[in-house]
């Protein structure tokens, strides 16, 4: 009991849970954004309109090849500082930075969601789409009612990978001052002489977030897999 108090007394005065809560919020909001935008992108890439296909391909290839740090710092320096885009955050740095981070993470992760989903679309036999077209369904109807429901079920595992990567990528938001876990870690390392212990605590925190994500989604993946 006493030994524990001595070892961990440097944690006092730090809002460890609060910082991880910001990490969770960053992850959830950007995951939702990335899922929606990524699905739209995948739709564009398999769609019949050449312009949209071209846009989807260009977007994915450009965005996934830019380092995330560059995207996030650009959002802050370019969008916020230069163009004064505040995303409705007004004058409050905290809100603006958080929203910019969510926007950047969502735009970046969407490229990976799109590619995972597209590989899922390719697992659905072409005959199904042809049959649906023969019944008179439009392209969006085919996608929405026939293809995507099956595609999603086959890419739960790859999407879980993307989600885990996203959880860890949120640490990059510290670069523009979002007070999430990595930001607090830098703060603590600067102020306390406990480098290894602090790093271990934060590594453990991230494992607590990502390990269950992987396990649960792995189980879901088995449950919903399309048996062919």
């Amino acid at each position: 009991m006493e030994a524990r108090e001595i070892v961990f007394d440097f944690l006092e005065g730090y809002d460890l849970l609060g910082a991880f809560w910001v990490t969770v919020k960053l992850t959830v909001y950007s995951a939702l954004g990335a899922l929606i935008w990524g699905t739209l992108l995948a739709g564009m890439r398999v769609g019949p309109v050449p312009l949209m296909r071209g846009f989807g391909t260009a977007y994915v290839n450009i965005v996934r090849n830019i380092p995330l740090t560059v995207i996030i710092v650009f959002a802050s320096l370019g969008l916020f500082q230069t163009l004064q885009v505040t995303l409705g955050g007004g004058d409050n740095f905290e809100t603006v930075n958080f929203r910019l981070a969510v926007l950047s993470l969502a735009l970046y992760t969407a490229a990976f969601v799109c590619e995972a989903l597209r590989s899922g679309i390719n697992t659905v036999p072409a005959g199904q789409a042809e049959a649906a077209r023969a019944l008179g369904l439009s392209f969006t109807q085919v996608l929405r009612l026939i293809i995507l429901p099956q595609a999603f079920r086959s890419v739960v595992n790859p999407l879980a990978n993307v989600l885990i990567a996203l959880t860890k990528n949120t640490t990059v938001a510290a670069a523009i001052g979002v007070v999430e876990a990595a930001y607090l870690m830098k703060d603590m390392i600067e102020a306390e002489a406990q480098l290894i212990l602090i790093s271990a605590i934060f590594a453990f925190g991230f494992i607590c977030l990502t390990l269950p994500t992987g396990l649960v989604l792995g189980w879901v993946s088995k449950k919903v897999a399309v048996k062919r």
Binding site: F93, A175, I176, G177, K186, E190
Partner: peptide, 28 residues
């Protein structure tokens, strides 16, 4: 910059209503 104590000193002791922005480096 992130991890620096200078800005926190100012906010806590001298100007509590100052808005604080932290970046990874001074260049930003």
């Amino acid at each position: 910059v992130t991890g620096s104590t200078s800005a926190k000193n100012v906010k806590e002791k001298l100007a509590p209503k100052a808005q604080l922005q932290n970046y990874g480096g001074y260049s930003e």
